[in-house]
Amino acid sequence: MSLFAVIYRYVDDTATLDEHRPRHRDHLRSLHEAGHLVISGPLAEGGGPGALLIFRADAAEQVEEWLENDPFRVLELIVEREIRAWNPAFGADRLAPLPAV
């Protein structure tokens, strides 16, 4: 398995994002509980609203599939999604082992 970084860039509509955020987080929580999503959270100010998500998967296509039904994507609240393999140089040993899927 490899690690994949996903960068989401959202529409600049705080009210709509806030309205649908609970369903978006429920979806991500289910991916975390299934052992796919390692860590995620919003990006700090600067560069517009967005988030960073780290997944453990066999291929980027697998990550795409898991994110296909994200309510933010379905509602077209994600204006850009980038999925890239991530090879951490330091600290990977500090990631908690995930259960076998």
Rank of each mutant, 00 (worst) to 15 (best):
W66P: 00
L43K: 05
E82Q: 11
Q62G: 05
V79G: 00
R73H: 12
E65C: 05
R25V: 05
E19D: 14
L31D: 04
P88E: 13
V79D: 10
A100D: 15
L43Y: 11
R9P: 03
N87I: 05
E68V: 02
A44T: 15
L98M: 12
L17N: 01
E61C: 05
I39M: 13
R73N: 13
G48R: 04
A34R: 10
Y8L: 10
H36R: 14
S40W: 06
I39P: 01
E65Q: 10
A96M: 12
A51R: 00
G50V: 02
H27M: 04
A59W: 11
L53H: 12
R25D: 11
L67H: 14
I7S: 05
R94Y: 08
A5E: 06
L98S: 11
W66M: 05
L98I: 05
E68Y: 10
L53K: 07
D58S: 13
D13F: 04
I39S: 07
F90R: 12
Y8H: 09
V74W: 10
A15P: 06
L77M: 15
P99M: 07
A44R: 14
R25N: 08
G47C: 01
E65S: 12
F55M: 03
L43G: 06
G48H: 09
Q62E: 15
A85E: 15
R21V: 02
W86Y: 11
T14L: 15
F55R: 01
